[in-house]
Every structure is written in C-alpha cells, then in structure tokens.
C-alpha cells in the first residue's frame, strides 16, 4: 500500500500530513485532524452525514480519499462558524427554527444548505428539498430544516 505526503487546507488552515492511500477524507478529517464535526453515517455515499465543501462544492467525504484533498480547500461544519467560533447566520437559523434533534445529520445538512444559499439567495421549499435530498435525517421529518433554511435566506437578504 502506498503512502503519500499531502498538503491540505481545512477551514483556511493548512495541514501537512502523510496518509496511506486507502484512508478516506472522512477518516482523515476526524482522526488525524480531530475535526469531529463531520460525521460518519453510512460510508457508502447515501446518507450525507459526512458532507463537506471540496473547493467550495458540497460532496461526501466518505467517497473521497484523503490524498484527493491534496492541494485542495476543504470546509467542514466547524468552518461555517464565525471567526470567534460562534454560529454563523445559517447555523443560528437552525437553532432558532430547532432544525434538529439529535444533531447527528446536522453538519451535513448545514453544508448542503450553505452551498445552496451561496448560489440561490431565495430558494423555494422545493429547491431546498432538492439541495438536502441527499442528506438523511431520522429525527425531524425535514420540515423544520426547510424552515430554517428559509429563515436564513431571509436574514441574509435583509442584511444585504
């Protein structure tokens, strides 16, 4: 098995590391960088709990190798927070709408919703469903999540 030197930027911080070829980006973020906000759900690309931004695009980190993040910009849920660690606008909206229960799918939901709002400042409920359609949640039934994204988009528009 080959091992490789990588340099990756996660939440705007640069890390250098040596990884075995088979280590997934998900395992690398959690175990090597101790960024445990990204969650392990299914490890076969269906549930979306491990979602991250890969050069700004939402993808599943269980379906990427750590080595594929070499020279890439990664954002995890921790990176959606303000510089002081407090929740950003979307995260606050998730709290205000109680868009979660156990909190396990929440980081993935936030990543998908964040990517949506970057492209669409006023998404409809159907567009939100489309963006989180690949993120499974067993607690909420999704309604409060959809409402939270709408709340965030409204606040973001108002603040412009």
């Amino acid at each position: 098995m080959s091992s490789h030197n990588i340099r990756i930027s996660v939440n705007e911080k640069t890390y250098r590391s040596t990884v075995d070829s088979r280590i997934t980006l998900l395992d690398f973020l959690r175990n090597d960088l101790s960024l445990t906000g990204t969650h392990v759900g299914c490890e076969h690309g269906v549930c979306g709990a491990c979602s991250i931004l890969y050069d700004g695009t939402p993808v599943r980190s269980c379906s990427l190798l750590a080595i594929q993040a070499d020279k890439r910009q990664i954002t995890t849920v921790e990176g959606l927070c303000n510089a002081d660690g407090s929740p950003g606008v979307l995260q606050k909206a998730f709290c205000d709408a109680h868009a979660m229960q156990c909190g396990y799918c929440t980081p993935g939901m936030l990543i998908s919703a964040h990517a949506l709002l970057e492209q669409n400042s006023n998404p409809s409920a159907d567009e939100i469903k489309e963006s989180i359609g690949g993120n499974l949640c067993r607690c909420t039934g999704y309604i409060q999540i959809i409402e939270a994204v709408q709340l965030a988009s409204q606040r973001l528009r108002n603040s412009r």
């Binding site: 392990v40 921790e78 909190g103």
Partner: peptide, 21 residues
C-alpha cells in the same frame, strides 16, 4: 425558546461516542 442543545450541534462541537479519543 431556543433549545439549549442546538448550538453545539450546529457548530460541530457535539460529543458523540465516536468523538471520544
């Protein structure tokens, strides 16, 4: 009223068993 637990979950700072090292 806000649910107290929610803030740690949205920041990725919940502590699940898998996070114990």
């Amino acid at each position: 009223r806000r649910v107290i637990e929610d803030e740690r979950f949205v920041c990725g700072t919940g502590k699940f068993v898998q996070d114990i090292q």
